[in-house]
Design a binder for these strands. Sequence first.
RNA 1: UCCUCGAUAGCUCAACGGUAGAGCACCCGGCUGUUAACCGGGUGGUUGUUGGUUCGAAUCCAACUCGGGGAGCCA
Length: 463
Amino acid sequence: MEEVLIKDLFRDPDSYLHRHFHVSGWVRTLRVSKTFGFIELNDGSFFRNLQVVFTDNLPNFEEVAKLPIATALRIEGQLVESPGAKQPWEMQATRIEVEGLSHSDYPLQKKRHSLEYLRTIAHLRPRSNTFSAVFRLRSLAAYAIHRFFQERNFVYVHTPIITGSDCEGAGQMFRVTTLDFPDYPRDEQGAVDFSQDFFGKETNLTVSGQLEAEAFCLAFRKVYTFGPTFRAENSNTPRHAAEFWMVEPEIAFADLYEDMALAEAMLKYILSYCLEQAPEEMEFFSRFIDPGLLPRLEHVINSDFGVVTYTEAIELLKKSGQSFNYPVEWGADLQTEHERYLTEQIFKKPVFVINYPKEIKAFYMRLNDDGRTVAAMDLLVPGVGEIIGGSQREERLPLLEARMKECGLDYKDYWWYLDLRKYGGTKHAGFGLGFERAIMYLTGIANIRDVIPFPRTVKAAEF
RNA sequence: UCCUCGAUAGCUCAACGGUAGAGCACCCGGCUGUUAACCGGGUGGUUGUUGGUUCGAAUCCAACUCGGGGAGCCA
């Protein structure tokens, strides 16, 4: 007998109606009367459940009537029109086989659970409606990203996860070592002797693939990375994780404006793709997680992102009359409250803030002609804040060296990075998209722990 | 790391110095079209941990642990 996926039933019910076939899946809920009952079955292929009707014509009716939630079943039957209001059709079961019994203390109940509670059962939460929707969407969004770049002839680069650059400058790193704790080999000064370590030098988990991506960019013209990234920061917020995924495109012969155009096109592509491919999931988020999500995303797709220079942003914030906890002043970094006000109150849509003072940005960003700002851009979005950070890179060797000196960096740690400027260097630009932050924006989920299958955050790696 | 709020049954919460409760879940029974089904009955607690105040602490105090929100760091 033919095995049918519930997704296929929902997408093309007419070709299955009045036909016999079998489905297999897990009991989401079960309701019984004396001589008949209903099972809502989810087979993992689709967000919605199939309603199965069974009667005491089944030899194992009594057994089926008492099945606990989450039991795995194989059901034979035929698809028929349903008299019920909530579904146009249902399966009339002729045979129900128990594949794997569940237990009555199954922790997921037929009612709404808090996201905090579900986090404590991370191995079971993908079976809940919310997480079923979140993780299917996460998968689609990842595919959308690859499609977007591949369609535009970008080359996908696997930059290393273990890095030997000991000063990438983007925060605390996790050390990678095979040295025995606590009996580290010591050198004459008593310091840890990393020459005896696996790689013969100090190594860490990467905080960014950008520097390596630049090397490939200057060979393949348009490249992107998409992989895990690690920060050992003691961050306790709903927006930070110790392990997260980042997308980092890098384009040659391009300036900051082309970089921004790329970022905007990419984000809109991901949104459109997900709305198109996962309408049920997106509808669910808009109903239960974040009312107003769908209109907002549609608005973003159909409108141009705002662009404002850092200097203009400072003026706008000063003129707003809004009182902030932190003073608004040229030269100081924008605080979260300033960023939120800009994107949520003034622009009410995603906005690029560009040309920041060089003192508050990384060494590799290209110095503007004014000599005091760099060609950097942050994309701020309502509700999430900074979702993308990027820049045009400094391609002029003397200027790059001067900036590194100012920042107290040692040339010899970056010898290969500097070589890129020496041998046919050209203007180029790129950005980093926090993948989870994009998922948060896309779903309305407010905590990054709820868009990562098994999240790693400070003091939390249970699963 | 800092500020702030919280932790009571499996889950969501009530009780705010004087015998610890409800809804849901679970168990038993009823119900011929249910939709977080419904109706009746039942089981279920060292009130996060440790210490203190008090005749008496879920309730007041302290520390710790864990969680929420805000800040810093950033993606």
